[in-house]
């Protein structure tokens, strides 16, 4: 990877060093907000991320109160105050949090260009195969080596499970871009595979971002 390309990406992030997280209602219910526009909110904290962030809103449904907490520290950049106290449907966009980008996110974005992507063959839900899942649990994700022909994923499409076999250069599973059980669009990367010869490049990217990003 050329330095100019890394420069380009870093420039882009310097111009707008913020990320935006939209919060959609995860289910139906009566909504009550606990924050106001432009209010500062904090994200998960604590040594084990055990302290929840600022309470953003709660949904009352079937006698249960379901609070939603901010996952990231930042500012409430938009909020649907018109919905306060009303019954909302699932999937309604209610709050947007603007937060300063972290080094990790920038590194991950640059690495997307470096790592060999393993793409979703169909719009479907994906799960790690039993073998890969147990290896990840036992040794950690970045210690799992995959080779062409290995059964690495299970594609759940229209209630059918289909094994997905890895095709591409052998390497370790460096990045996982999907969440198990959440639908992924066709051709979206599922995994970022790192072939052994690309490890120095990755190290270089990480060092550069760490050094240049405050």
């Amino acid at each position: 990877m050329k330095d100019t390309y890394i420069n380009e990406i870093l420039e882009k992030y310097r111009a707008d060093p913020f990320g935006y997280i939209d919060s959609h209602t995860i289910h139906t219910g009566r909504i009550r907000f606990f924050v106001k526009k432009d209010e500062e909110v904090s994200g998960l904290s604590g040594e084990w991320h055990h302290i929840p962030g600022t309470k953003l809103y709660s949904l009352h449904r079937e006698g249960n109160e379901k609070p939603t907490f901010s996952k990231s520290s930042g500012i409430v950049s938009s909020i649907r105050n018109d919905l306060e106290g009303k019954f909302v449907e699932a999937g309604e966009k209610v709050i947007t949090i603007r937060y300063p980008l972290k080094k990790r996110e920038i590194i991950e974005e640059i690495l997307r260009q470096v790592l060999a992507p393993f793409k979703a063959p169909e719009r479907a839900k994906y799960f790690f195969s039993l073998d890969v899942q147990s290896r990840i649990e036992k040794f950690g994700q970045r210690s799992v080596m995959v080779r062409p022909g290995d059964e690495i994923l299970t594609m759940s499409l229209m209630k059918r499970d289909t094994p997905i076999y890895y095709q591409g250069e052998p390497g370790i599973i460096h990045s996982v871009y999907f969440q198990q059980g959440i639908t992924v669009e066709q051709d979206e990367p599922l995994l970022g595979i790192c072939p052994a010869d690309k490890l120095p490049v990755i190290q270089k990217v990480i060092t550069r971002v760490k050094a240049e990003w405050e």
Binding site: I26, T28, N64, E92
Partner: peptide
């Protein structure tokens, strides 16, 4: 027609039914 998160979430069905 009311949007819910899943056809298999009984709380969703019942909350819409009540509302």
């Amino acid at each position: 027609a009311w949007r819910i998160s899943s056809y298999t979430d009984s709380n969703e069905i019942l909350s819409i039914a009540d509302y």
